[in-house]
Simulated scan of single mutants.
Amino acid sequence: MKAFVHEHGKMKLKEMTDPFADHGQVAVSIRTAGLNRRDVAVPGRRGEDADALILGSDGAGVIQSIGEGVSEFSVGDEVIINPALGWYENSEAPPEQFDILGMPDHGTFTELIVLPAEQVEKKPEHLSWEEAGVLVLSGLTGYRALFTKGDIQDGETLFMPGAGSGVATYLIQFAKQAGARVIVTSRSEAKRKQAIELGADRALDTNSSWPDELREETIDIVIDSVGRATLNRSLEVLKKGGRLVSFGATTEDTVELNLRKFFYGQYKLIGSTMGSQEELRAMLAFIDKYQIHPIVDQTFSLDEAHDAMNYLKDGKQFGKIALRIRE
């Protein structure tokens, strides 16, 4: 089978041995896979001497074979892959055995993948292959941050720095269906327009003065994945006693915080990451109920995986980037 791998310090296409579905496992013929920021970071965490690892966490495809003991799926079923490994029930934090598909295990940028049967779910019928292939990692991350951790309520206002990331496009749609008002930021005028078209109520220039722009707004909750560049700015506009949910740090990991200002404001700072199988199934029911579609900015072929990775690094996309593995 053909796969896009990281091997001995380089990313490349490589022929790999087809895996075999053993007891309790399913073999999925991948139709599409989705790129995530994690895929860009993985090579730098492996070193120059590491053997071939298939990259990718998101994917969707058709079950090609099943191992003994699998009764809930059949050959030919259309499925999506859950990259959150070993996290089944909703909990305050991931269990110790939690991991993410794509390192250390082989990932989804391949024609065939074998997984435990509990790591796949039926593909939502209203989604195209491209939409299904980019759904889970970003969608589940957004769902947990917004509902489980953020506890968004009807009539509240959500503020979100950054409008173009995959998670942001899910959060806009999820929050609007939950009855919230949504305000986002972006340096790009085009992305601000796209965010409004997707359902955001307001889209600010990231370089503007947020306190001035939001003087007439009451921000109940902030969801921030940028980190150092935006966290303190977000606290400036968050109402006293409001919630700030952080699920990422695309800038710096460490942030200087004025503790006196923080505790006088009675703010709630909440961490979040990915989500459980229980939350994934709740998210799938939610997107089915409201017929929500992932936003796919661009689709590349597996042969164009290098171009897709570079496009992701440039950060020009609005929404998700897909890899077409098989027609």
Score class of each variant (00 low, 15 high):
residue 65 S to E: 13
residue 186 S to F: 05
residue 223 I to W: 12
residue 309 M to D: 02
residue 260 R to N: 14
residue 212 D to Q: 14
residue 322 A to G: 02
residue 175 A to T: 06
residue 138 S to Y: 04
residue 216 E to P: 01
residue 214 L to M: 13
residue 183 I to T: 06
residue 187 R to F: 06
residue 313 K to Y: 01
residue 72 E to M: 08
residue 238 L to Y: 10
residue 251 T to H: 10
residue 139 G to V: 02
residue 174 F to V: 03
residue 257 L to Q: 06
residue 172 I to H: 05
residue 310 N to E: 15
residue 1 M to W: 04
residue 322 A to S: 09
residue 282 A to M: 09
residue 97 Q to C: 09
residue 59 G to H: 05
residue 15 E to K: 10
residue 261 K to L: 15
residue 272 S to K: 08
residue 101 L to H: 02
residue 202 R to A: 14
residue 118 E to A: 08
residue 215 R to C: 07
residue 179 G to P: 01
residue 87 W to C: 06
residue 164 G to P: 01
residue 146 L to I: 01
residue 122 K to H: 09
residue 185 T to Y: 07
residue 69 G to M: 04
residue 296 V to N: 03
residue 317 Q to A: 14
residue 276 S to R: 09
residue 201 D to W: 03
residue 51 D to F: 11
residue 300 F to E: 06
residue 17 T to F: 06
residue 123 K to T: 01
residue 162 G to L: 12
residue 180 A to L: 12
residue 272 S to E: 11
residue 28 V to C: 03
residue 4 F to Q: 05
residue 273 T to S: 11
residue 169 T to C: 08
residue 225 S to F: 13
residue 187 R to K: 14
residue 99 D to G: 15
residue 172 I to R: 13
residue 21 A to T: 07
residue 176 K to F: 04
residue 195 A to H: 09
residue 198 L to C: 05
residue 83 P to F: 11
residue 3 A to E: 09
residue 297 D to W: 05
residue 317 Q to V: 06
residue 225 S to L: 09
residue 118 E to M: 05
residue 152 I to Y: 07
residue 162 G to A: 14
residue 208 S to E: 07
residue 205 D to I: 03
residue 25 Q to Y: 04
residue 304 E to F: 01
residue 7 E to C: 07
residue 200 A to I: 05
residue 313 K to V: 12
residue 149 K to F: 03
residue 46 R to I: 07
residue 230 T to Y: 07
residue 271 G to A: 09
residue 110 T to K: 07
residue 53 L to P: 04
residue 183 I to M: 01
residue 110 T to L: 07
residue 124 P to F: 00
residue 124 P to R: 03
residue 162 G to P: 14
residue 150 G to W: 12
residue 293 H to E: 14
residue 41 A to S: 09
residue 269 L to M: 12
residue 65 S to Q: 13
residue 35 L to N: 04
residue 14 K to G: 10
residue 6 H to Q: 12
residue 218 T to M: 08
residue 68 E to F: 06
residue 80 I to A: 06
residue 114 V to Y: 15
residue 137 L to Y: 00
residue 306 H to W: 02
residue 31 R to P: 02
residue 126 H to Q: 04
residue 317 Q to K: 13
residue 310 N to M: 12
residue 3 A to T: 04
residue 214 L to I: 05
residue 112 L to M: 15
residue 203 A to V: 05
residue 121 E to G: 00
residue 28 V to T: 04
residue 41 A to L: 15
residue 163 A to C: 03
residue 268 K to H: 12
residue 267 Y to T: 03
residue 94 P to N: 15
residue 161 P to K: 05
residue 137 L to R: 00
residue 190 A to M: 11
residue 8 H to F: 13
residue 272 S to G: 07
residue 273 T to H: 03
residue 65 S to N: 12
residue 320 K to T: 02
residue 143 Y to L: 01
residue 175 A to V: 05
residue 64 Q to W: 14
residue 17 T to R: 15
residue 97 Q to M: 09
residue 210 W to C: 15
residue 86 G to L: 02
residue 192 R to S: 11
residue 305 A to H: 13
residue 166 G to K: 08
residue 141 T to E: 05
residue 279 E to A: 14
residue 50 A to D: 11
residue 219 I to Y: 05
residue 165 S to A: 12
